[in-house]
Amino acid sequence: MGRYICKRLLQAILVIFLISVFSYFLMYLVPGDPVYAVLGSDITREQYMEQFYLMELDKPIIIRYVHWLTRFLTGDFGTSYRYSVPVSELLAQRLPITMYLGIISLVISVILGVLCGTICGTNRGKAADNILTVLANLGSVVPGFWLAVVGMYIFSMNLGWLPSYGFAFPWEGAGVAASLKQTIMPVVCLSVGSIAGLTRQMRSGMLEVIRQDYIRTARSKGLKESTVVVHHAMKNAIIPVVTIIGLSLRNIVSGAVTIETVFSITGMGSLLVNSILARDLPVIQACILIIAGMVAISNLVVDICYGYLDPRIRIQ
């Protein structure tokens, strides 16, 4: 297993490196003058040329890439064109927020999704299954930002229970209650899609597993149905669900730009999108690499989980 992990780690590093190359080259092929992107359009010729040389735009792209890579590896992510602050500072401000919301959303999604899916799978055709399946289908098509706006309309404008915007950690000034109120709507909007997808996947996995011979054996042992479902069926049914969870792990760092915009949350999603629109190259590259790194890690984590969950893979 150890060797397997090492091999996958090396692969992951290779992938991330390739992505850094692609993203760097791609950004420079995109139209839009990077000098204007930094300084704005209201500048003199001298200012333009000064910035031009400062950004090494006169050198070939490979040299620029190598310089960039060297700096990157030493922790210097460059300075944002838009904000004129080090990119690491921006990331340090926004990444925790996105990760906080992302992890909460992930945990809720997994718990609810697996639970609902199990209920559906074990009560096939009955009321519980039908209702939950309809809800799951709805949940997978409803856009998160629509839900956000509707929620805001109901809970903020009309009822006044929850704030329309803003975000603060529980340990910051306003207190735990205020932070919680601010967190509820964004987390719900982020989670709905995942819950729906996980429910459906778990349901179909459950339906397949519950027909298997070993479930019949478990029942013939006289076990309670709940024990059969939880201890025997779920462990098998959850294996394909792990793949799906793995796919959505990257949302922890990539955030969701639409929901962040609606709730005025300063997260990674809006950072990435706004940086792309403003051609803020250092930020774009840093974000891409962080997301790529996360994807690589989540793939690795999923593989390890498989090995843990399914002994047939672990032990040859």
Binding site: Q212, D213, Y214, T217, K221, G222, H232, K235, I239
Partner: peptide
């Protein structure tokens, strides 16, 4: 699903099935 039936199954009456390859839970 009553307790009485569950006591009988596996307790007073054991069952062995045809397919040994699939009758055991692969992850336990």
């Amino acid at each position: 699903k009553s307790r009485e039936m569950r006591e009988v199954r596996g307790g007073q009456i054991g069952m062995i099935f045809q397919e040994p390859m699939t009758s055991l839970n692969p992850v336990k």
